[in-house]
């Protein structure tokens, strides 16, 4: 059986955690991340979601023009940012985030 199948199978048989445990408590009040930590964390997200080499995820890079990140991947990135930094990016703000630097600034000022 492949990983896909066992994952599907597990999801059928595993009881979901109670709602109160779904979000680890430290995520509710995360320590503030430095600019370098945010850039590194964003780099990890970009690698996972869009296959971007972390070294390429520098502040001046445009998500669409330079890193080939499409609009649906931006939605995934926003979800991952919320998981990692506890910062939710509203849709109207997401549209204004054009570069890696924009994302870093948004996370920095909203964490």
């Amino acid at each position: 059986m492949t990983p896909t199948d066992t994952r599907d199978a597990r999801s059928r048989t595993t009881t979901p955690p109670p709602p109160g445990d779904a979000v680890p408590s430290e995520r509710e009040d995360p320590p503030l991340a430095s600019t370098q930590e945010i850039q590194a964390g964003l780099g990890e997200i970009l690698e996972e979601v869009a296959g971007v080499t972390p070294a390429d995820a520098t502040p001046e890079k445009s998500f669409t023009d330079d890193l080939d990140v499409d609009s649906l991947s931006m939605v995934e990135i926003a979800t991952a940012v919320e998981d990692k930094f506890g910062v939710a990016i509203p849709d109207d703000q997401l549209a204004n985030i054009k570069t890696v630097g924009d994302a870093i600034s948004f996370i920095e000022s909203n964490q």
């Binding site: 896909t4 994952r7 599907d8 999801s11 059928r12 979901p16 779904a22 649906l72 991947s73 939605v75 995934e76 979800t79």
Partner: peptide, 22 residues
């Protein structure tokens, strides 16, 4: 079908905001 059923699990366990944009 694997996506439909897998994302239905995500929906039930984590809610609509966690459903993949794909």
């Amino acid at each position: 079908a694997l996506t439909l059923l897998g994302q239905d699990d995500v929906l039930e366990e984590k809610g609509p905001k966690r459903v993949s944009p794909f």
